[in-house]
Amino acid sequence: MAVLENKISVRNLCKTYEMKGNSHEVLRNMSFDVRENEFLVLLGPGQCGKTVLLNILAELEQPDGGEIVFAGGRPRMGEIGFVFQKYALFPWKTVMGNVEMSLKLRGVDKETRRAAAQEYIDMVGLSGFEKALPKQLSGGMKQRVGIARAYASEASIMLMDEPFGALDAQTRYQMEDEILRICEKKKRTVVFVTNNVEEAIYLGDRILLLSSRPSSVKEEYVVDLPRPRKHTDPAFLALRNRIVSNTDLNI
């Protein structure tokens, strides 16, 4: 593999919430690097501040301390794609309307944005559903729209916040293969958050195991298993056991 450059450097990120006089420290001195075009998985127990971390990366929230350095300078809003756990599609827009929205907001003319959106709709396998409303789609299909929508913004960085967390196991496996196929086709820097160890090993080039709150990076695992990976592969299981025995229980 070629030497990958750092796309994002996160240094000493801190975040504390004040709620009803209690302070909840969510992130403590969180530091890590994200390399260009890698699939980085952030694996952590529930409630460990993974969503907060992604929100800070996307500038939806501000950190209390620390810094984030992007190669080539701080991306403007619209230059980071975000796939949300609960799909968050716009129910009044069709599949096409949802996917083309970022381009529309940027003032791209109708013909160009339709063509671009169509490419991503085809990519996630929703050809023929352009005119469907979200409520007519299944959970897996909704998240396909969510992925197409994030990719259509042409952002070079994709943040994915437990995108398959709400799906049933069967659909989840399907979508994991789907996202790998898409990443193969459209090289982007992906930061993927999950609380599922198997999902992390199945997808990631690299896994950062987070500690429970206040969370920081506990351990880094480089997954050098060939793809497609098998959940029953001894090397897969060995890595799984190593990670599980190192995971903080969240009570």
Partner: peptide, 26 residues
């Protein structure tokens, strides 16, 4: 839904655009 507002924010929508394209329809 605040998450839908966040979606529009990640698209770089201005507060006024968020008002007209997300809040009013919803």
């Amino acid at each position: 839904d605040p998450v839908k507002i966040n979606v529009a924010k990640t698209f770089g929508a201005s507060p006024f655009k968020i008002f007209t394209t997300v809040c009013i329809p919803s």
